[in-house]
Amino acid sequence: MKTILLLEDLPEIRAWLRKLVQQVFPDAAISESSRVHDALELVKTVKFDLALVDLGLPDGSGVEVVTRLRDLQPDAQSVVVTIHDDDEHLFPALQAGAFGYILKEQARELIIEQLQRISQGEPPLSPSIARRVMAYFTEKARPSARNSPVPHVSLTDRETEVLLRVAKGYTLPEIGVQLGLSRHTIADYVKQIYRKLNVSSRAEAALEAQRLGLFG
């Protein structure tokens, strides 16, 4: 039995998503919401295992919900479900703590497979997102940035290796074969990369807030 949050403003798509989710998780209790505000209220009261979050909503961005879920329910898994496939839209959501993303227009079967993978701990990672993550950590490792008081989170060599290969267009199973590792181990690396991205981004955000005097 799972509790699932569904945040999507278009009714047809929401209905379609619900059917999909019910197919993957037949026993799940599904809370639906079409606005960021409502979703934030729900997150306060209901404990979720999974949240499917659209980004462009009438009263704000789904990234807010991802952030709040990360704060209030660290065990909940946020997945961005979006029409935007570019890293400009996706990266902030990943930094906020989302574990992967699903593109809405993909075929039903593909989405079902991805949902299953995500629920089994295999988040997707595209080459452009991988490049963006590498650039982010490289930037942080620069000597000028190293002196900053942000707790330095860095990737391990293996994680970097996986990222590098994803950026070159290799699929996760291919990378597993190349590195002589199981598919699950590779998936774990990807999850770890997402986590580090979130931790590092949060530390940075906290520091920025401190600098701006938000926390006295």
């Binding site: 595209s126 080459p127 452009s128 490049r131 994803v166 950026a167 070159k168 267009g169």
Partner: peptide, 30 residues
């Protein structure tokens, strides 16, 4: 939808590194 997205991206006008492009193409095609 795909066409639309590609068109929108085409508007950015930014050059893409061939190595990056190959990565994207490989991932999708494979």
């Amino acid at each position: 939808l795909e066409e639309m997205r590609l068109s929108v991206r085409g508007l950015t006008g930014r050059a893409v590194r061939l190595a990056d492009a190959l990565g994207d193409w490989r991932a999708e095609t494979m």
